[in-house]
Design a protein around this nucleic acid. Sequence first.
DNA 1: TAAACGTGGCG
DNA 2: TCGCCAAGTTT
Length: 292
Amino acid sequence: MLIPWFDAHARDLPWRRPDTTPWGVLVSEFMLQQTPVGRVAPVWAEWLARWPTPSAMAAAPQADVLRAWGKLGYPRRALRLHAAATEIATAHGDRVPSELDELLALPGVGAYTARAVLAFGYHRRAAVVDTNVRRVIARAVHGAGDAGPARTSADLADAERLLPDGPQSRAARYSAALMELGAVLCTASRPRCAGCPVHADCAWVGAGRPEYTGPARPTQRYAGTDRQVRGRLLDVLRGAPGPVPRSALDAAWSDAAQRDRCLLSLLDDGLVEQLDGTSFALPGERGTEART
DNA sequence: TAAACGTGGCG
DNA sequence: TCGCCAAGTTT
């Protein structure tokens, strides 16, 4: 019932097209780590057109990759994807690995992304546990109002137990369907149980849809945080055609102590390079003259 | 294990 | 307006 529903209602996302390569899937999964589908789609298309293979991306300077990443957020992901591309190009013959342990060894690839590549890139039997699947399992299997704190190995075991027997491609499709269910129907707020293909078997519905009772997720602020300051600084570098003088970065945030601390952390993360005493640039940037 | 890590849309 | 939330990973 879940797969037929998916057959009929799956969103037409660009990375789901049949001609998408495992590399295309890997790129999409990096971008989708904490960034909504709607913002990823246009950027993903540009990336695949520009860098259709891992080696193509590996050949690009990090600065180009960071600019192309734009405002997707968490730019360390762009650096890790570039590093993964380099490793795939040099150590895997330019082919995205199709073994779980090899995928997990790539920078920026964790339990979710590795299995997503197996399922969506290679149509292999793999349980994917993301925020959507965690919520669906919490409700449909355990009758809870929502997923509480991470229970990583238990969720993975639950998800694996749900996978249908038979061809691996069918289990892979089931994984996609489970995610889709959480993304479009079994949503965090106001789930649309009417029209849910597993409504009749849902433990949460069976229990009368009880409220979530677990601990509240810690609310994370953004305004005034180092994350915002780092974002501002990086935005200056992305927007400039080349290296910028320190004064350009100084203008991005008034609190000098916080600004300096954040610049140091960006340098430490490899997201920014210092070219000389007074000029800064995205890593791998060509050109040496600072512009005002 | 908890905290850090960007950004923007929506109710 | 503002809190919530979005296909996580790393340290």
